[in-house]
């Protein structure tokens, strides 16, 4: 009898905590389902749905240049997922991926001992961890991006932190990303403050900003599958799976933070600081939206 009571108590404790945990991401899950469905519908049959989603693109061009239907996982490829000319061009470029050399550098850096004799593996014994970043650290009460984690590891080992965005930090993250290929993005919202951070990131994503009064949403949700000048606009779904990227325009690797800062600036706003609270929140929201998608970084972009 007593045993049974204890059992019931335990069961209700467990289910209670599951319900409790589910509460924090309830809204986010609702958002994510709508987000994913929008993209799946939009790219299911662009010819049939031209009037709804691509009113100013001719059927002829859609038939010639668009790739469809797109599966959930296909969105890992950004603008290359739907735009045939880019996909073909990059298939050629990636026959010898330009990120290969910096990726090798990243591996060397990962394995090179710090002054104290330890290496990055003292912090990341299993380098296949990128799927969990950015995560909400409930003790520090803030978002930890993978860049911050790399620098925390350095500081803990008596090394100077690296500059964010490009260079060595992008190389080390590329190695971690490479080792994490195939892992599914798994962003969690562990408590009420994490949910707040998620909501803040969401607000930034939909906010019209700068003198162009344009939002991430307008270019990468509504605008996804259209062209801005010669640039095929990438869908926001999957937008973080391939990071860091080697960009031809940069002539080197750049991290998600670098890309986000650049896109905010392109809207006519002041360029935000990398790893600032708003950029971390934006990354947290954006990565959450791709939960369940397999990672494929690093990759090459225009």
């Amino acid at each position: 009898m007593l045993k049974r009571l204890a059992k019931i108590a335990i069961i209700s404790m467990i289910s209670g905590s599951i319900m409790f945990a589910a509460n924090f991401n309830a809204q986010a899950e609702k958002d994510r389902h709508a987000f994913v469905n929008y993209f799946l519908k939009k790219f299911k049959n662009p010819v049939k749905n031209q009037a709804k989603y691509f009113p100013y693109v001719s059927i002829k061009e859609i038939k010639k240049d668009y790739i469809y239907p797109l599966s959930f996982q296909a969105f890992q490829d950004g603008s290359l997922s739907w735009y045939k000319p880019s996909k073909e061009q990059f298939a050629e470029i990636n026959a010898f991926p330009p990120y290969e050399i910096p990726l090798d550098d990243g591996e060397a850096l990962y394995k090179k001992p710090f002054a104290n004799g330890k290496t990055y593996s003292s912090c990341f014994p299993n380098p296949a961890i990128k799927q969990n970043y950015p995560y909400y650290d409930t003790k520090k009460d803030e978002i930890i991006t993978i860049g911050i984690a790399v620098n925390e590891c350095r500081v803990k080992n008596g090394e100077k932190p690296l500059k964010y965005g490009k260079g060595d930090i992008a190389k080390v993250i590329s190695y971690l990303a490479y080792k994490s290929r195939g892992q599914k993005i798994n962003i969690k919202i562990p408590n009420a403050n994490a949910a707040k951070a998620y909501e803040a990131g969401k607000k930034l994503f939909y906010k019209q900003r700068g003198y162009l009064a344009i939002s991430c949403n307008e270019c990468h949700v509504k605008g996804a599958g259209k062209r801005l000048r010669a640039e095929a606009l990438s869908p926001a779904l999957g937008a973080t799976t391939q990071m860091p990227v080697y960009r031809i325009k940069w002539g080197g690797l750049g991290t998600l933070q670098r890309r986000l800062a650049g896109c905010v600036k392109d809207t006519g706003s002041e360029k935000p600081k990398m790893q600032s609270k708003p950029l971390k929140e934006l990354a947290y929201f954006l990565t959450y939206m791709s939960n369940g998608m397999k990672l494929f970084g690093p990759d090459t972009r225009k």
Binding site: F54, P55, Y56, V57, E61, G223, K226, R227, L228, R229, A230, E231, L233
Partner: peptide, 9 residues
Amino acid sequence: PQTGDIGPK
């Protein structure tokens, strides 16, 4: 050169 198609022609 290289016009986009977010808006109408």
